[in-house]
Design a protein around this nucleic acid. Structure first.
Lengths: 338, 338
DNA sequence: GTGAAAGCGCTAACAC
DNA sequence: GTGTTAGCGCTTTCAC
């Protein structure tokens, strides 16, 4: 069934039906009611493809993330899907597995056209890569990599959160804090480097030296990876009295490895995670973690996107200025810290 | 840039470009190469909306699930996304929050048209509800609810898996197995009822009576819900020597509650989960679980969909017969059982 | 093996 | 306030 069928049945033109459906002004109340009744009667549904082709809107927002099986992005996706649904938009998910090729592919011109807006977690691509791409679609980047000034960017306070966590561990007596996912060279602008900087700052502020052997680099921030990292540290014989894992998922692997080693948490070793995922308060023992403001982040993302999408509809005349938002972090202390 | 621009540049018609792009026969090798070179040269990308409008294909497959923040569907989605990507298809996610309205909405005519295929986890809707919907889009249902014979359906062996798990607990000495998510009335065809039947079968086979107070109904199968259920059971004073939770997520809450109660697992109480998610082997203690064949399930889903989508392309003349697949379950024993 | 014409269903622009 | 016209970019059909 087409719009024209509804129009004929209601005794109006297709244009009027279109106007009613899209809530545009310039339709008398009487006509509107009649058209709505006819639509309900016939069970008419608009054809998205035709609308998309003609008007350029798709009703879909893309979310490009490295993975979905870990808790972090799955929880973010859940929040975003709910917030977007309220605005009549769909969330479409794409996984990059943190591969630069897949990230670049996701923002290719053809793919972007599929969406009214894009939310992209940038892990590998640089500002230079992004410059090559012509964005007509509104994009909000999340993550810490530097982004060209033309785009909205939202990030968590990685340095501040890590600094807070490390300070707490130091103040509660830890002197040898292993850091899972840390970087020996924290010069780049990515999550591990930024959190490592926070870790170093806290040590500097409290005048504690860092044994470089406590900084354990990992290839990924999953639970198996955290498990392997701690097992390796343990076997290498480097002493430590606390562990700061850069994700809750990795911390979960750390807890498992400590239990295998027969170490008591937090008596022998304190443990701190990052993300404050829903699972943290049910681990044994309950995981202390850095809460990076995920709820606020999801809300802000949708807000930014919405603003830019609305502007795009107005012919792009008034493009809102690009914004970088930093969401504040705070500590949630549970049973793995003293 | 449009197809016609490529055509002009290559000195052919738009139709020939279309034929090349879609790999159709009837284009000379020479022309094909020239067109491909021009496409690469100009960086042309097809417009999905136009193709969709004209040809009806969208390149997207919808996955309708109750939630994404729990590990089960997130892991399934990850697997499906990967398998579909290999076939050049996108995975679009929709969450229903297990609401019948949202489930019905998801399979409405207009929404279905957005996809080349649909994978739907059915929790609440009945065969009667589904009969009302006219599916031109290929649909694969997952889950245990009865499905009209016109559709492909894939399910795990809930009864068999639960029976296996319960038998193991009984054989290792448990006599009072609490079941988190069980149903007093297991007459309906849904996951909790089917798993409860397996639990009852195993008891009947081994001649063990069931204390109905051990069957704890829950409103959801999340970790907090499992935690609350076990805390409640504990406080109600009903003795038990094992817990069978119907999801790993719920089992995680159970483990937490047992730790709070100072009970040793598996010495005082054995615990068994269901799903065998990636997190199980890192819990403290490592969770024994029923492996429902998730990998095979994802593969089979894509296979079924693919088959039906290919047939749809052939004008629907040869519609493949509808198939119901049951994936076998097996036990993975770790540290929470004896 | 290749091309021309028609039209998928909708909406922007403008006429009335 | 409502209708008419045109066309978004592709693919189906059929002619050559």
């Amino acid at each position: 069934m087409r719009m024209i069928d509804v129009a004929r049945e209601a005794g109006v033109s297709a244009m009027t039906v279109s106007n009613v459906i899209n809530g545009r002004t310039g339709v008398s109340a009487e006509t509107r009611l009649r058209v709505l009744a006819t639509i309900a009667d016939l069970g008419y549904q608009v054809n998205h493809a035709a609308r998309h082709l003609r008007a350029g809107r798709t009703g879909a927002v893309g979310l490009i993330v490295p993975d979905l099986d870990g808790p972090y992005y799955a929880q973010l996706a859940t929040r975003l899907a709910r917030d977007l649904h309220e605005r009549g938009l769909h969330l479409v998910l794409e996984q990059t597995n943190a591969s630069p090729e897949r990230e670049l592919e996701a923002i290719s011109f053809g793919r972007l056209r599929m969406y009214d807006g894009l939310i992209m977690s940038l892990l590998r691509l640089d500002a230079a890569d992004l410059d090559q791409v012509s964005f007509e679609t509104p994009v909000v980047f999340i993550g810490e990599r530097p982004v060209p000034p033309a785009f909205d960017h939202i990030m968590m306070d990685n340095v501040g959160g890590a600094r807070l966590a490390t300070r707490h561990l130091l103040k509660s007596g830890a002197r040898r804090i292993a850091v899972i996912g840390g970087r020996h060279d924290d010069g780049t602008e990515d999550m591990p480097s930024l959190r490592t900087r926070g870790y170093r700052q806290a040590h500097a502020e409290l005048g504690v030296e860092i044994d470089p052997r406590l900084v354990v680099e990992v290839e990924s921030f999953t639970t198996p990876s955290g498990f392997r990292a701690l097992t390796w540290l343990q076997e290498s014989g480097v002493p430590f009295d606390a562990v700061f894992a850069f994700t809750d998922a990795a911390a979960m692997g750390v807890l498992r490895a400590l239990a295998d080693a027969g170490l008591q948490v937090p008596q022998d070793v304190q443990v701190m995670g990052f993300d404050n995922g829903t699972e943290t308060e049910f681990l044994v023992p309950r995981l202390s973690s850095v809460e990076p403001g995920n709820g606020a982040m999801a809300e802000r993302i949708v807000e930014l996107l919405d603003r830019r999408m609305a502007a795009g509809g107005n012919g792009g005349a008034e493009v809102p200025p690009q914004v970088t938002t930093m969401v504040n972090a705070r500590l949630v202390l549970r049973e793995t810290t003293r």
